[in-house]
Design a protein around this nucleic acid. Structure first.
Lengths: 228, 228
DNA sequence: CATAAATGACTGACTAGTCAGTCACAGTCA
DNA sequence: TGACTGTGACTGACTAGTCAGTCATTTATG
């Protein structure tokens, strides 16, 4: 989670202080670079704190301390705690979605495609900070409709659509028997979500081999795999 | 705002949860009874507030107001906010588990059993206050290890064990082909959990027919059902 | 009437958000 | 090149407000 935006990121950001500057004219300006680094540090720190404590219980002072920044600095980058949380979610999710959306290499069987997807998800999300972010969204979603909306629009609806496409392809190719599955791609994804939650909540009680579980689930959908 | 609450102004509120006692008829003269009613009112109110706002953002004043009680009264029943939350979860979950644990009438096919279970879950949990409670536990679990522990011990591990038993029976009877499924009963339950989350988070974006989805999922596990 | 239950004003700890002041740095000039 | 200066990023002490928990007082009960 340590990335360095080369340019003064300041993405959408909707509103808040826009400060005449912007206009990325100044090339390689030491000043702008430092500002971007600071912003990134704040985002990282905030993510960590929000995941650990939830929105309401997180103190801006702690975020500032963790980011190695004074509290006032946070307000140079974000309007207030709420919009910081909202922007944070966007900032973290957008690149992940972008990466996933740019993946699908249309080769091999549908099962292989789905399996590749699952493995990717396993490695990139389950048991990582990003998995905790999903739990955070589930937790705070009802109190942050804009976050829930964003997440639905950018992640859920797209993911569902993509999975539906894959399922329909699988049906067409005869890899999947159960035709109704295309109506509920959620079923395909459900165990992966459970794995995410399980890791945050119960892994210390009963560790879960998510990879193996997903394999079993895919066997269920595609039929048992012949011995490799 | 200067009134004398001679009676519990907001008595039952919306409690359809458990605790069948107190139908709101008898004025309850017995001292112990009234105390119990108060406690129940506080529990109901607290549940409502915690679900709506999360632990940290919930104000004791609001709980008191909703319960038709002064704030001090809360402290006659609970040590502090934290232990109130913990006890609350226990209080609400225990009777549900008890009821479910006392159900299984071992008759009919395994599929019928599971289906009965699913329908029960659908009616009693998905889209109800109890479903929101599950989301609340997912949300606050990491910050309340004792709650997560309790939930794992009383609900998750038992549920998993029960499902595993059912799956093994299904395998033995030839209703279920996929033998590995017994290793991951989570897969059987996953869509139901997804349904719970979906209702809280996305139902206004895209309503989900949970019943139909679960049917499709069971078809996947048991094979398509012959037309009834 | 004695005692238990209930109340709600109050306190003290805590925190989101502010803003006057500091100072590092880019730009300018000699 | 080195000294000078205006800018604005950054700071952190401070304000105003919030809320968990207390307790002296009032009310109900047996």
């Amino acid at each position: 989670m340590t990335k360095k935006p080369i340019k003064p990121a300041v993405p959408a950001a909707a509103s808040d202080m826009d400060r005449g500057a912007s206009a990325g004219a100044a090339p390689a300006s030491n000043r702008a670079t430092r500002a971007a680094e600071r912003r990134a540090a704040i985002v990282d720190a905030a993510l960590e704190e929000f995941i650990a404590r939830g929105f309401a219980a997180t103190r801006l002072d702690d975020i500032a301390k963790r980011a190695g920044v004074a509290k006032g600095t946070i307000y140079l980058h974000f309007k207030d705690k709420e919009s910081m949380f909202e922007e944070l979610v966007r900032t973290v999710i957008v690149p992940v979605v972008a990466r996933l959306a740019a993946l699908p290499p249309p080769a091999g069987s549908v099962r292989d495609l789905v399996e590749a997807f699952a493995n990717n998800f396993l490695k990139e999300v389950v048991g990582t900070r990003r998995g905790d972010l999903v739990r955070l969204i589930v937790a705070e979603g009802p109190r942050f409709p804009s976050v829930a909306d964003f997440y639905y629009r950018e992640v859920v609806s797209r993911g569902i659509a993509a999975m539906r496409g894959l399922i329909e392809l699988g049906i067409a190719r005869g890899e999947i028997r159960q035709k109704d599955l295309a109506r509920y791609p959620q079923i395909l994804v459900a165990p992966a979500m459970i794995a995410v939650m399980w890791q945050s909540l119960f892994s210390r009680h009963a560790p879960l081999d998510a990879q193996d579980m997903l394999r079993v689930h895919l066997d269920l959908i595609f039929g048992e795999r012949r011995t490799t």
